[in-house]
Design a protein around this nucleic acid. Structure first.
Lengths: 213, 213, 213, 213
DNA sequence: CATGAATGAGTATTCATTCAT
DNA sequence: TATGAATGAATACTCATTCAT
């Protein structure tokens, strides 16, 4: 799924070996600053200059590195999306199949609650993909990456007899991902009225029911 | 649900009676033009001028009426959102309860397929609400309006014995709406790889399963 | 001098005889509204529409009557400037000569204090004349009208032996008018720190001294 | 007084040392161009773009530096007003007291005649202060700076016995400044009919008379 | 006479992008 | 590598002016 993990930022960290190191670090900091700002204001209502300054660099640096605003948005999307999967491993303590599927779903909600900034950016990117050709490709890949482990677990569950045979693994996996995203979106829009834990519990319960053999 | 109905626009129609008529018509046409353009390019990448021209008016009219770009986006959101519910009646041929609930869900997919332009705008607005305070309020109202009929039908279904008693009507209704939206979003992003009818069938089937007594 | 008198406004007044009457009244009210607004914001930072509405008419009426913004400003300047002299008569209780001259000067300060709105507009027009060709003509006439009675009284005073013979009537009259305007301007800019009565007293005293035989 | 000195502009001058230098120079040139244009057309009827171009830069630079038109007008006012006093020194060859006071007054007229562009801008700013809150503050400071040396010289003159004891130094100083400004305004509005030298002579003569012991 | 709808030119303003330092 | 000065295109917004009712 579109899991989200925090990078190991070392703000005031170790001696920069080379210029390459410095560049890497600057790029990372710029992307982190972009993340914070985009989470608040969306993918359009920010300026390159303010991201440079928010990252502690000059107004001109984002353009210098990412070439253009579009370039930065693309890098940000890649950065966020590529966080995907790193966290999925944590669900692997459960055996493949229904158990792990439920673990993966749980993890989706947990990781959204743990890192709402990144989550918000991810969903901004997902929303933008509706009308932005360039992002659609990346999102297509994300979808494939996200659906596969779900479908795999459905198949494993069917094989293990935990999941009803008549379930269409791929279609259902898509639907599960949609449901996860829809639920998290609701929460992101209105976190005060929607309790993420309750939603998660309901989601898991309904998932069990509808997959049960 | 966030149902969507097309207005009976009469583009080249009859003589304008009064000044009020003229104004009303101009406003309607501007919003229609905005709808078309926003569906393609999202809520930011358009200009007020092009909307004026696309509507057959001057470049300045949108600003004149809506005051600002933000004002137009707000009016568009209201326009789209207030279309909600008009179509819900069509599902009322079914008796209140599970039947009608499934009808409502079906209708959601059908109406998305029938009017992809409006649907796309609606979902652009939903996405924008993540990072746009002004839209959030409107979406909050939409959510309430959308969840209520679903929850009502769940309660009716429980009363009628069609739906399991242990179902939490409100939480489940929210989750169902989320699922509908998530599924439609997936289709909007990638209509070529996702077949709306299949998704609908899967969704309905899984809904039945998870609500079954 | 640029004396200032209140017009005999009859706001809710007698039955309008003719359409001409109505037009006259509308024009007067528009100019009064313009006066108030210009006194606050100067001769540029207002819109025709707001004057129409402030006068209790439609947004379009000022353009309808005065043709253009420039037209309205011109009419306003004429309106204000033509108030000149009507009040001068009040100083004529004094005999022509030094006495009346001092009365006229006094009256200038008094009338500014009594009607600061009009005074402010008059001085806005005077200031604008620095860089606005169209207004310069009107101001030229105003100057001539304003200087003449002063100069006449100086001559009368010389003839009567109240004023030193070596005084150049015209040059001194110009200087007196300048002094009056300069002093009133200071007060208008900073009414809290400048007491008009004190300024008047000082002005009169210094005038006496410098004209004394 | 509101004395006015020309800066030593080097339009096509030497290589720019640092970025700071570049910026300073650009700012100065923009203000000079603004001065020229405002002197002709007043504080409203100009565009930021034309000032940029008149200064030999791009259309966008004025907005880039001064943020807004209002910002530029403010900077221009400060620029003009802060020129104050630099020239006052020239009157200091006379001993403090009546002599120097008359010198200062003379200098006021001379400097207006020598630099009519700046003088015109200064008086446009003075006029605008009537209806522009932001400028009023600056003008308040200018007034204080302008009145003080006059009042000081009056006091010195009284001490030296050159000036009548009964003169109220501050009130009279304000009145003198008003008279100077009023007289120069008249000349600026109608330079063809008003001879600055004659006005100056009359002013000085009348000043002597009214201050004489 | 009076209203207010609609136009469209004029401009401030923003900011990605380029370029000199 | 990094800064920030300068550009100039894009565009929101204002509002006098015109015109239909």
């Amino acid at each position: 799924m579109d899991a989200v993990v925090s990078t190991n930022a070392k703000p005031g960290a170790a001696a920069r070996r080379s210029q390459l190191e410095r560049r890497r670090e600057a790029e990372r900091r710029l992307l982190q600053a972009a993340e914070r700002i985009v989470a608040e204001r969306g993918l359009e209502r920010f300026t390159l200059a303010e991201i440079g300054e928010a990252a502690g660099y000059s107004r001109g640096l984002p353009a210098h590195y990412f070439g253009s605003k579009e370039g930065l948005v693309g890098a940000l999307a890649t950065h966020i999306v590529s966080g995907f999967g790193r966290g999925a491993a944590r669900a692997e303590k459960h055996p493949a199949g229904l158990e792990r599927l439920l673990g993966v779903a749980s993890y989706y909600f947990e990781s959204a609650g743990r890192d709402p900034v990144r989550t918000r950016v991810l969903f901004a990117v997902l929303g933008e993909a509706l009308t932005n050709e360039a992002l659609r490709t990346r999102i297509g890949e994300l979808n494939a990456h996200s659906v596969k482990p779900i479908a795999d677990n459905i198949r494993a569950g069917i094989a293990a007899g935990d999941i009803r045979k008549s379930v269409n693994a791929n279609a259902t996996a898509t639907l599960i991902l949609s449901g996860l995203r829809g639920a998290v979106t609701q929460w992101l829009i209105d976190p005060k009225h929607i309790d993420l834990k309750t939603v998660r519990a309901e989601f898991i319960a309904s998932l069990k029911r509808s997959l049960a053999p």
